[in-house]
């Protein structure tokens, strides 16, 4: 169970992206809705996805790009900024993914 205690002591400092995403309601599909061909990323200079994905789905580990679709907010930014067209982008099926209630 990923429920958390209400209260905001821990909110007095900058939240990690995972903790921010935990605020939302999710029904994540076991099938990824976005596929990244990371072989195209090695010679990508800016890797704009890393800073601009608002869900932090793109991270660098030992300067290699690592992608995880689970926290995706379905905004389309990565697809737009990727200079290598390395991203096969779509929305999740069956109503899965993020479930907004207050936005």
């Amino acid at each position: 169970m990923s429920s958390r205690e209400s209260g905001n002591q821990q909110l007095l400092k900058i939240q990690r992206i995972d903790d921010l995403l935990q605020r939302n309601l999710w029904d994540v599909d076991h099938r990824p809705h976005i596929v990244v061909d990371t072989s195209r990323c090695t010679d990508c200079e800016y890797k704009p996805c890393v800073l601009l994905c608002p869900a932090g789905c793109y991270t660098l580990v030992d300067s290699k790009l690592l992608f995880s679709y689970e926290g995706c907010l379905e905004c389309g930014t990565c697809r737009t900024v990727c200079p290598r067209e390395a991203i096969t982008w779509n929305y999740p099926v069956s109503g899965r993914g993020v479930l907004y209630r207050f936005s």
Binding site: N8, R101, S103
Partner: peptide, 21 residues
């Protein structure tokens, strides 16, 4: 967390985080 803005909501709870183009 901006020092001059946080006063408005700092005891509140983040209930959603979203993004959109």
């Amino acid at each position: 967390l901006h020092p001059q803005l946080r006063q408005y909501w700092e005891d509140g709870d983040i209930i959603e985080y979203s993004a959109h183009l």
